[in-house]
Computed example of a mutant assay.
Amino acid sequence: MTKKRDEITDADYEALANLRYILRRFSEFSTSAAQQEGLPSQQHQALLAMKGYRGDTPLSVGVLADRLLIAPHTASELVERLVSAGYVTREPDPADKRRQTLALTTRAADILKRLSTIHLTEIRDMAPRLIELLSDLRNEDPFPSS
């Protein structure tokens, strides 16, 4: 039977630091790729969250705020910028006319496809190292039996 270690080792610190480094590198890559397409990073994240949403309720500003971990008023401002830029449309929700549903435009779908293609390539390139780091963090040493 194995138990979690009580002490954090130098190898644990190294694995955590390396994991954070890889995540920061990916984040920087993602920000740069979005900017090359003329999108601020947060707008790219919003478009991706919208495209990937498969919830039981229609996609609304509130749902988007939850998906992006931002305040509803911040999501509302973000959606307004996306609508103004021609990336998103708002329509009344047929079930609740007080609420608006969000949808991507063809322009947004085209940019998102280009960005997602290069993001998937980057993730596939970094996957072996990421898997190795996560595996190192997952391993648990048993306490020596006495």
Rank of each mutant, 00 (worst) to 15 (best):
residue 137 L to V: 00
residue 71 A to L: 11
residue 127 A to Y: 12
residue 16 L to Y: 10
residue 98 R to A: 10
residue 13 Y to W: 11
residue 1 M to C: 06
residue 24 R to T: 12
residue 129 R to S: 11
residue 47 L to S: 00
residue 122 E to W: 07
residue 134 L to V: 09
residue 67 R to D: 11
residue 56 D to H: 13
residue 91 E to F: 07
residue 119 H to L: 06
residue 90 R to C: 04
residue 21 Y to F: 02
residue 34 A to T: 03
residue 129 R to D: 14
residue 12 D to E: 01
residue 113 K to M: 10
residue 26 F to T: 13
residue 49 A to I: 09
residue 55 G to D: 05
residue 40 P to F: 04
residue 116 S to Y: 02
residue 20 R to H: 11
residue 52 G to R: 10
residue 41 S to T: 11
residue 71 A to K: 15
residue 143 F to H: 12
residue 69 L to W: 11
residue 88 V to W: 07
residue 95 A to N: 15
residue 116 S to K: 11
residue 50 M to P: 08
residue 56 D to T: 11
residue 107 R to T: 15
residue 48 L to Q: 13
residue 68 L to Q: 02
residue 66 D to W: 01
residue 3 K to F: 08
residue 113 K to S: 15
residue 143 F to I: 02
residue 145 S to E: 15
residue 16 L to A: 14
residue 52 G to P: 01
residue 22 I to H: 06
residue 104 L to Q: 09
residue 9 T to V: 01
residue 81 R to E: 13
residue 9 T to F: 09
residue 43 Q to R: 13
residue 139 N to W: 01
residue 135 S to V: 03
residue 43 Q to V: 01
residue 137 L to I: 11
residue 81 R to F: 05
residue 69 L to E: 12
residue 41 S to R: 06
residue 85 A to G: 14
residue 102 L to S: 07
residue 27 S to G: 10
residue 92 P to M: 09
residue 139 N to H: 11
residue 50 M to L: 13
residue 110 D to C: 00
residue 19 L to T: 08
residue 66 D to E: 12
residue 89 T to G: 03
residue 113 K to W: 04
residue 21 Y to N: 01
residue 77 E to V: 15
residue 110 D to N: 04
residue 56 D to G: 07
residue 138 R to D: 05
residue 39 L to D: 01
residue 24 R to K: 13
residue 58 P to I: 13
residue 12 D to V: 14
residue 135 S to A: 10
residue 43 Q to N: 04
residue 55 G to R: 04
residue 101 T to F: 04
residue 121 T to L: 13
residue 84 S to R: 14
residue 74 T to L: 09
residue 32 S to Q: 10
residue 79 V to M: 00
residue 38 G to K: 02
residue 15 A to G: 07
residue 120 L to F: 04
residue 129 R to G: 08
residue 42 Q to H: 14
residue 36 Q to L: 02
residue 75 A to T: 15
residue 38 G to F: 00
residue 94 P to G: 12
residue 97 K to W: 08
residue 105 T to F: 06
residue 99 R to V: 15
residue 131 I to D: 02
residue 21 Y to T: 03
residue 27 S to T: 14
residue 56 D to A: 12
residue 32 S to F: 08
residue 71 A to H: 15
residue 137 L to W: 05
residue 91 E to I: 03
residue 91 E to W: 09
residue 32 S to G: 12
residue 25 R to A: 13
residue 24 R to Q: 07
residue 128 P to T: 09
residue 140 E to H: 10
residue 143 F to L: 04
residue 21 Y to G: 06
residue 106 T to Y: 00
residue 63 V to Q: 00
residue 2 T to W: 02
residue 145 S to H: 02
residue 130 L to W: 05
residue 143 F to Q: 05
residue 44 H to I: 02
residue 46 A to K: 14
residue 103 A to W: 01
residue 50 M to V: 01
residue 136 D to Q: 15
residue 102 L to T: 14
residue 57 T to M: 11
residue 106 T to C: 00
residue 47 L to G: 01
